[in-house]
């Protein structure tokens, strides 16, 4: 699969201060990259560099498309349009495509924005603005989607809606998002990039989430089908490590072999 977005030793300075340095990673069509870091670590600036808003001070960003959807952490203040007007206008920036109005209507329904369509953006709540920010990015039919703290300001229902939209479009384009910590949206990540104090501390491509399952067994032989490097015995209990996506299947098998499930938790 071809690389859609690549960062090669990207660094960025602002007013002589280095915000981050030597960030490198690649994103393919099916990548969902979670950029993790504390406040001020440069996550938002990195996203702006990737979006083409800022130029990197050093290094190179290679984009194999210019159709980028970008959702800022805070939707800008002072935009002089009503919600519907803004969405229609920004959708019209792109080459004339059929069905733009229908697409707007679909997203407006999905994010429950209908009551606010005639409201000036300046008068909208933070959550409503955040939804408009998400919709404007999706309306571009992007080939790369960049989301800066996408759940900020959204109520639980809207968070679930956004996650289901992202689940639906994952695989069609690389999705990159930032967050302070692991939350709802981070569960989708296939790759993780950690930034700390402006430095890339780790990059885990093809990151797989794992689970720990603690079981009580009757006979050790019943657990013989589990590879030795994935199980630790402690008396008549065992701690099994399993890929998240295979955990349900394993749990079923364990129950069928008369094991009692004591605990299931995500591996830190």
């Amino acid at each position: 699969m071809s690389v859609v977005l690549e960062a090669r030793n990207v660094s960025k300075d602002f007013d002589g201060n280095r915000l981050f340095e030597n960030i490198s990673f690649t994103c393919k069509k099916k990548s969902v990259l979670f950029v993790q870091g504390s406040n001020g670590s440069g996550k938002s600036t990195l996203l702006k560099v990737l979006a083409g808003i800022y130029e990197p001070t050093d290094g190179k960003v290679i984009r194999n498309t210019n159709k980028i959807g970008y959702v800022p952490e805070h939707f800008p203040e002072g935009i002089r349009f009503k919600v519907k007007e803004y969405l229609s206008l920004t959708a019209s920036f792109h080459a004339a495509e059929e069905g733009k109005e229908q697409l707007i209507a679909n997203y407006v329904d999905l994010f429950d924005l209908s009551p606010f369509l005639s409201m000036p953006l300046e008068a909208c709540s933070k959550g409503t603005k955040q939804k408009v920010g998400i919709i404007q990015a999706l309306l571009m039919r992007p080939e790369i989607l960049l989301l800066d703290e996408p759940l900020t300001g959204l109520d639980l229902k809207s968070q679930q809606t956004l996650i289901s939209v992202l689940q639906e479009i994952r695989g069609q384009m690389p999705i990159l998002f930032t967050a302070h910590d692991e939350g709802l949206v981070s569960q989708m990540a296939t790759d993780i990039l950690h930034i700390s104090s402006g430095k890339m501390t780790s990059y885990q491509p093809h990151f797989k989430k794992e689970k720990w399952i603690r079981v009580q067994f009757i006979d050790e032989k019943d657990l013989g089908f589990i590879p030795p490097n994935r199980i630790q015995f402690d008396g008549n209990t065992a701690l099994i490590t399993v890929d998240q996506e295979k955990s349900d299947e394993l749990l079923l098998k364990l129950l069928q072999t008369n094991c009692s499930i004591l605990e299931v938790k995500e591996k830190a």
């Binding site: 808003i53 210019n66 970008y70 800008p76 203040e77 002072g78 920010g133």
Partner: peptide, 17 residues
């Protein structure tokens, strides 16, 4: 006319500075 945030969004939406 625009604050920095609005300008950033416009640059991405237009695909070009």
């Amino acid at each position: 006319l625009e604050e920095n945030g609005e300008k950033d969004l416009l640059i991405v939406q237009l695909k070009s500075k």
